[in-house]
């Protein structure tokens, strides 16, 4: 099976400038290309290589090297291959043209990445708010968003229960001794 995935990668390499490719495991290959190439590769995969559906659009935030890595995972029902087409976009104010025209479900994936990472997808028919209602802060999934700090500002954790936190086993022992004492008293 792997050789056909290599043939596949090699065929794609011939038509498009592929910066890097690797085969992760049987049936899963990844290739890096530039943002301009993205649409070409995806349309090629769908039309020529019969990759019927887009499983998901992954997005990882590499804050050290200051880029988001978007990976479009196309899946083919005939050969059961998944190809991850990866592109790198800047962390702030980047915009990738939508792939909704190719696969309809991309609209939902892009909408989620737009809300969580702030990547703009011009052409997407429904880029309004998805999970968070009236969210004023920065997109929450970016690494520099500190969720514990956000919790401290917006919500108040229960104080009175904390200091009274007692050691369960000690409490249990006390209860048992009191019970024994009581039984002994009733015994006399």
């Amino acid at each position: 099976m792997t050789e056909t995935i290599d043939n596949l990668l090699e065929r794609i390499g011939r038509n498009f400038q592929i910066t890097g490719q690797e085969v992760k495991k049987a049936g899963l290959a990844a290739l890096h290309c530039s943002q301009e190439q993205l649409h070409g590769v995806l349309i090629y995969l769908k039309e020529v290589e019969k990759f019927d559906t887009l499983t998901m659009i992954g997005c990882a935030d590499w804050i050290e090297d200051d880029y988001f890595e978007l990976s479009y995972m196309a899946y083919s029902f005939t050969t059961f291959f998944t190809v991850m087409v990866k592109i790198r976009v800047s962390r702030d104010g980047s915009s990738v043209p939508t792939v909704e025209g190719i696969w309809r479900q991309a609209r939902t994936f892009e909408r989620e990445i737009h809300e969580m990472f702030g990547v703009d997808f011009p052409g997407n028919t429904r880029l309004k708010e998805f999970f968070l209602e009236n969210w004023q802060g920065m997109p929450p999934m970016k690494r520099d968003f500190d969720t514990v700090q956000f919790v401290k500002d917006h919500y108040k954790l229960r104080e009175e229960g904390r200091e009274g936190a007692c050691n369960v086993s000690v409490e249990r022992k006390k209860r048992i001794d009191a019970k024994k004492l009581e039984l002994k008293k009733e015994g006399e």
């Binding site: 999970f131 968070l132 802060g137 929450p140 968003f145 969720t147 514990v148 956000f150 919790v151 917006h154 919500y155 108040k156 954790l157 229960r158 229960g161």
Partner: peptide, 19 residues
């Protein structure tokens, strides 16, 4: 609802319902 439970550090869930 008592104290945020397992999602105490989540930005979208409320921590104390009885507030």
């Amino acid at each position: 609802p008592i104290n945020g439970g397992m999602y105490w550090d989540s930005y979208n869930t409320i921590k104390q319902l009885d507030r």
